[in-house]
């Protein structure tokens, strides 16, 4: 290891962290204890914003519930699907490159506004999805006027982007030594038994990693609901990130919005810390190393 000069190389990043992470992190917390509307000077109000959000603001509480619904719906579905496809792909199969790309394309484009437009369009009452359902003799579904259906539409957009988790699973699957499978076969284990007793335990670090990554993302989802359902119907898809955005940039309640973002942050933190704590019970590190 060279010793001199190290600081010099990481200096820009260090300055950047102060400006773009540390400063806004602290400021955001301070803002959350004030009322600030961009015109009048900020006024200290103590915990009022938090109390109001948690006890009186039904729109906010509903948005937290919707965000939890969205997260609990999308993350397990996405990961299960990603694992399932990775498992099928982990096989000497022709055209593996084609499939890898085909499944990955939605992950690249999913965040694009163009895809949100596509989604809005194919789920219209006379759109592609209903036309296909009609072919199978199923009546039109009013995707955007039922809360359950609307939540399904934006969740599907997320699950559709399972490609990056799938690639990570696939890479982990390919690292599992073949001898383990052979040993398991010699011991007379069935395929299913091998999957649950050999494959899954060895994949737990990857599952854990994907789970954290997708949770943090899902809790902050904005583009899908903002562009496709606009939070409707009846605010059933009005996720917390939309609440935070509206309060800041539509109603100019900067302090209130900051407090809401801190509550969301606490929710995310609770989930991730609980996962980290529980990880010693279910995550299995074969060589003492993580992902």
């Amino acid at each position: 290891m060279k010793n001199r000069g190290g600081y010099l190389y990481i200096l820009p990043w260090c300055i950047g962290v102060l400006i773009f992470t540390v400063y806004p992190f602290i400021t955001s917390l301070m803002l959350s204890f004030t009322n600030y509307d961009l015109i009048n000077p900020a006024e200290f109000v103590g915990l009022n914003n938090y109390i109001k959000l948690l006890t009186k603001d039904t729109a906010f509480l509903k948005s937290i519930v919707a965000t939890l619904q969205y997260t609990i719906l999308t993350v397990p579905m996405q990961l299960t699907f990603a694992l399932f496809i990775a498992f099928i792909l982990n096989f000497k199969i022709k055209g593996i490159n084609f499939f890898r790309s085909a499944y990955y394309i939605p992950s690249i484009l999913g965040g694009n506004a163009a895809i949100a437009i596509l989604w809005r369009f194919i789920f219209r009452s006379d759109g592609l999805v209903n036309q296909v359902l009609n072919v199978f003799g199923i009546d039109n579904v009013a995707w955007f006027s039922s809360p359950v259906a609307a939540m399904f539409v934006i969740s599907l957009l997320k699950v559709w982007q399972f490609g990056s988790s799938m690639l990570i699973f696939l890479a982990a699957l390919q690292e599992i030594p073949q001898e383990l499978y052979e040993a398991s076969e010699v011991d007379g284990a069935t395929k299913l038994r091998t999957f649950f007793s050999v494959t899954i335990p060895l994949l737990t670090p990857t599952i854990f990693f994907n789970l954290i990554m997708q949770l943090v993302n899902a809790f902050q989802e904005f583009n899908g609901p903002y562009l496709i359902t606009q939070g409707g119907p009846l605010k059933s898809t009005y996720l917390s990130s939309m609440f935070i955005y509206d309060n800041a940039f539509k109603f100019y309640k900067m302090g209130y919005s900051s407090a809401a973002s801190w509550i969301l942050f606490m929710v995310i933190l609770t989930f991730t810390l609980t996962l980290f704590k529980s990880s010693s019970k279910w995550v299995y590190y074969s060589d003492g190393k993580g992902n």
Partner: peptide
């Protein structure tokens, strides 16, 4: 892992 939602407003 830090949620962007926290830092966006002060920036």
């Amino acid at each position: 892992f830090l949620p962007q939602v926290i830092t966006r407003l002060p920036l």
